[in-house]
């Protein structure tokens, strides 16, 4: 069970080298035929430096780094009772193949809510600000986890 004393807690940084093949794989898994994600030349013609990442790509460093299960375990959230409630991204700069992005997951808030049916839930918001190899902010990800009790 999560609790409010955990607000502000941070976790090991996620460090992720962005690869062109992984961008293509993500676009193909979604079934997105947009050539900017699949073909470097098409991306350049469309005004990008290389193939940009699709809007939901930041789930890749989060999930492949196994950061989420570690975090859920560490916050003593019951894995069987957790739901992904919300996901939000803010985009500050393009992310391209060859970039190394780094983000430190941080517990932004923990709130208890009661559903209309009278069931209690903990709402845990985890925020990750990603920076690139030049220490520039590239994106912020916010994940709301809902733990049913």
């Amino acid at each position: 069970m999560a609790d409010s004393t955990q607000v502000g807690k941070t976790f090991d940084p996620i460090v992720w080298e962005v690869e062109r093949g992984k961008i293509r794989e993500m676009a193909k898994a979604i079934g997105d035929p947009n050539p900017i994600y699949l073909d470097r030349d098409a991306a350049i013609r469309a005004g990008y430096r290389d193939t940009p990442v699709p809007p939901t790509f930041l789930t890749v460093p989060m999930m492949w780094s196994s950061s989420m299960p570690v975090l859920i375990n560490d916050l003593k959230i019951n894995f069987m009772m957790v739901l992904h409630g919300e996901e939000e991204y803010e985009y500050y700069r393009d992310i391209y193949p060859g970039d190394t992005i780094t983000g430190v997951p941080k517990v932004a808030s923990v709130e208890e809510k009661t559903s209309k049916a009278g069931k209690k839930m903990d709402m845990v918001t985890v925020e990750i600000l990603y920076k690139n190899q030049n220490n520039e902010d590239v994106a912020r990800a916010r994940t709301l986890l809902v733990e049913r009790k």
Binding site: Y48, E87, E88, Y89, Y91, D94
Partner: peptide, 10 residues
């Protein structure tokens, strides 16, 4: 265009 996207939440 992808580069125009500033915020996206669901």
């Amino acid at each position: 265009p992808r580069k125009c996207l500033r915020k996206f939440g669901v």
